[in-house]
Design a protein around this nucleic acid. Sequence first.
DNA 1: TTAGGGTTAG
Length: 584
Amino acid sequence: MAAPAPAPTASPPPPPAMSGLLSFASSRPYPPLPAPRPAAAAPRPRLRIAGSAAAAPNAVSHRASSSFSSGDRLRSLVRRGELDEALRLVGSARRPDAGTCAALIKKLSASGRTAEARRVLAACGPDVMAYNAMMAGYCGAGQVDAARRWCAERAVERDAYTCDTLIRGLCGRGRTANALAVLDEMLRRRCVPDVVTYTILLEATCKRSGYKQAMKLLDEMRDKGCTPDIVTYNVVVNGICQEGRVDDAIEFLKNLPSYGCEPNTVSYNIVLKGLCTAERWEDAEELMGEMGQKGCPPNVVTFNMLISFLCRKGLVEPALEVLEQIPKYGCSPNSLSYNPLLHAFCKQKKMDKAMAFLDLMVSRGCYPDIVSYNTLLTALCRSGEVDVAVELLHQLKDKGCAPVLISYNTVIDGLTKAGKTKEALELLNEMVSKGLQPDIITYSTIAAGLCREDRIEDAIRAFGKVQDMGIRPNTVLYNAIILGLCKRRETHSAIDLFAYMIGNGCMPNESTYTILIEGLAYEGLIKEARDLLDELCSRGEEILLDVHLIDVAFLTTFLPCSNANGGPFLRLPPEGSPVYDALL
DNA sequence: TTAGGGTTAG
């Protein structure tokens, strides 16, 4: 792989607001990374070496040593995600600790293993923490109906907290109507919904049915004798802003005292966010001025929000000015203040500036967090500096910021795209050895990289690994392998996999169809390609095909379809191209 | 239970 172009050495001078701030920007392509976070710099003593878990010291426990070590072992297994081993241990334990069981229930449910989670629940006996974990698990796994049935069986509705979990789970999956039904059940059973329950429901109602509907629920809540608090009102203020009615939100805020509730800084921040979304910068500034007078001075969130919005709109210099204002208001910038700017520099491909900015934040006592580093890793990979990314990844722990799944996924992807699949696979082994569980993104990345190298068999092994882990392969993973098969002209196998994908309940997307249609057309299987396109037609989706992959015969065959009402739209080849000439 | 980082695969 050719060495990437170095970062421009003659970068434009920093904007005025930055003058002096970045003066220590190094002339090296990449300045040394910031010094380690003092508090976390000292290497932590290793408590235990691999394989000696059972011999863990139990000096702090007064319980029987056997029960301590098994409980300790169970906790450690759950933490490491070794669920099968944890399940075996739960099966043999006399009375496993409810907190650990709750954690295991959560993890099992997250992998869709709710039946096994229920076995764990049975093993640990009645415990509200475990109940809530089960409820959250069902909801998280999308089995909200199972959650409701289970809830009814156990009559746990009487516990308001468990009900909140169910209501939150239902609301989180857009099942607001069911959540409201649970509320009715609660009221019938004289299980008093509290302000939290209502607030959750109000938030969902705002999202689903709009704030006007939420206002009705607010009245109902008051009728039932439940007094809204400022959080409740803020949820409604947010709902009003979400519908683009910021001025109505401001009006509502003004009337709050007449309901016996004073706005707080969060209330103003919500309105401010609405103003920023509408790019009403002057109004935002004015509101910030008012906040102090109204006894709700801006806090660091206020400034962070402004910085984030300005950066998103490409207004990096004003964002830098806001950053400089923060201390004048008695607030300290934190990593959330710096990260949007760091991201902006990365996006501008000004890596030297980004690195210098990182130094700046450290010199001001704000330590980069994992999001800062992940932002850098992404940018380094995208700018062709994968080796620097690998180096940074390996330095993270010493900087007091251990790499996470996303960090590894980012660099693994960078390596596969740089044609360094072997190193990517080594990194995969490394993360596993460090106890980080790869996820669907890790394996999709690896599979796509292997396919790019025509190593379809290995990619299919990665696919199998995902299934072994109890994770359902998703569309992205299927697409990667289908593309690999099509590129190898094994279109029939690709179609088989397509059928398998649908049979397993994984919905194909536009890319899936594009890949397959192009693959079929390449092999001259025009009829089959057409059938697939018709299927897309019936879905009424727009399809943009890469004309470079399509031969003239294929385009000519399909052209009439592009005029069909409501049918797919085939982007025409660029004017003057050979394909365009052949068509007209 | 409300507001803040448009960190990862196609």
